[in-house]
Amino acid sequence: MNGLFVSSSPHIRSARTTQKIMLDVIIALLPALIASAVIFGPRTLLLAGVSAAACVACEALWEKLRKQPSTVSDLSAVVTGLLIAFNVPASMPVWELIIGDMVAIFIVKMLFGGLGCNFINPAMVGRTVLFLSFTADMTNYVIPEKAVDALSSATPLAIMGELGWNDFPELLLGIHGGVMGETCALALILGGVYLVIRRVIKPIIPISYIGSTLLFSWLFGGEQPVLSLFAGGLMLGAIFMATDYVTSPYTNKGKLIFGIGCGLLTAAIRIFSNSAGGVSFSILLMNLLVPYINGLTMPKPLGGVSEK
């Protein structure tokens, strides 16, 4: 016998891996990606592919230059790439999109130490940098090919006051202007349900985020608080961006505080500042508070006696 392995217990491990989790997130994004291709045309697929590839390439390049072991197989760069693509309109020039990818991977992710070490969501920063740098291109919302009325040719958040419940089906299906991945609320919710069923995420953040957005929108006197939930980037942000493990709190209580904070900020920005990007700024701001939320919501160890 040529030697036995000796290692620290436990000697069995669960089947869950980072790669499988990321793959599940990619699968969960597919309905919305398909919906975007149907609504805005096949260019969305090109953007998604380029963005994912660019993120993977950036990570691989960084690790090559820094002589670090490659981590691209964990698929987290693919998720970041897809999410950035989801946050640009279908008309976005490809080179601008790639700048967003580079910002996300080089500056936000790798500079801080790679996966798990970034303190804010890379995709969200990529999106925000693009929004502030190329505002015109980022808000050049493509009108859906199947546009039928005023709603479908505009971004609904801008004309919330004019909308009524008869516009709900179009909101739900996403047949209206907006960035490519955010419009089809139905597809995003479907992806979210998949993630919950696969136990990749808990529903706490999406539900508390969306719920508190509704509550505060109503309290702040926003127009059409219920319908506005299905407009803009809320569904995409609440289901896919705010639930990012690295930049959200550990515990259920922490997640609840985080979700409510996001909702409060989103409602406030949407109603009081009239600025697009309420969801992005809210999530980024709450990302910064995660260490404090984690500190405040530390579970009490069973039988732990605090030092006097």
Partner: peptide, 10 residues
């Protein structure tokens, strides 16, 4: 691999 801060251990 790198900790993704998912909180599963907690």
């Amino acid at each position: 691999t790198a900790c993704i801060r998912c909180g599963t251990c907690i």
